Simulated assay, not measured.
Amino acid sequence: MKRIFGLGVFILMIGLLSACNDDDTSKEPASNPASETASEPATAAAGDDIFQKSCITCHSSGDITGGQVKLDSTKIHADFQKKEDLYSFVEKNMPKAAPGSLSKEQYEAVVNYLWDQKE
Rank of each mutant, 00 (worst) to 15 (best):
I64E: 02
A109P: 01
G62V: 07
S103G: 09
L17A: 03
L114P: 00
K83Q: 11
D72Q: 10
D22R: 15
T57G: 09
Q52C: 08
K92H: 06
P95D: 01
Y87I: 04
E40W: 15
A30K: 05
K53W: 00
G100C: 13
D48L: 10
P41I: 03
A97L: 06
I50A: 04
D63V: 06
S101G: 09
H59S: 05
K118P: 04
D49K: 15
T37I: 08
N93K: 13
D23N: 12
I4F: 15
N112S: 09
N112Y: 01
C55P: 00
K70H: 06
G8F: 05
Q68T: 14
P95G: 01
E36Y: 03
I50V: 13
E36W: 01
Q117H: 15
A109E: 01
L16R: 07
E108L: 10
V9I: 13
T65Y: 03
A44N: 06
S60W: 03
L102F: 02
L16C: 10
A34G: 05
P99T: 13
D63Q: 04
S101C: 09
L114Y: 05
E119K: 05
K27N: 02
T57Q: 11
P33I: 10
E84N: 10
G6M: 15
S103F: 06
D72I: 05
A19E: 12
S18M: 14
T37V: 09
S88M: 05
S73R: 04
A78Q: 13
T57N: 11
E84T: 08
L16K: 06
S103D: 09
E108N: 13
V9K: 01
I64P: 02
Q106H: 00
G15E: 09
E40R: 15
F80Q: 05
Y113D: 01
K118I: 12
S54W: 02
K75Q: 10
Q81V: 01
G67I: 05
T57R: 11
V110Q: 01
L17E: 01
D24Y: 07
I14K: 04
T65H: 04
A109F: 00
N93H: 12
F89K: 11
D48W: 07
A42C: 06
Q106I: 02
T37M: 12
E36T: 05
P99A: 11
L7K: 09
P29G: 06
T37R: 08
S60Q: 11
D116S: 09
S31F: 15
D24N: 13
Q106K: 00
S103E: 08
N21Y: 13
L102N: 00
V69F: 15
G8E: 03
A46M: 05
V110M: 05
L16A: 10
K96D: 06
L17D: 00
Q68P: 14
V9F: 08
E91N: 15
G8A: 07
N93E: 11
P99G: 12
F89E: 11
K70N: 07
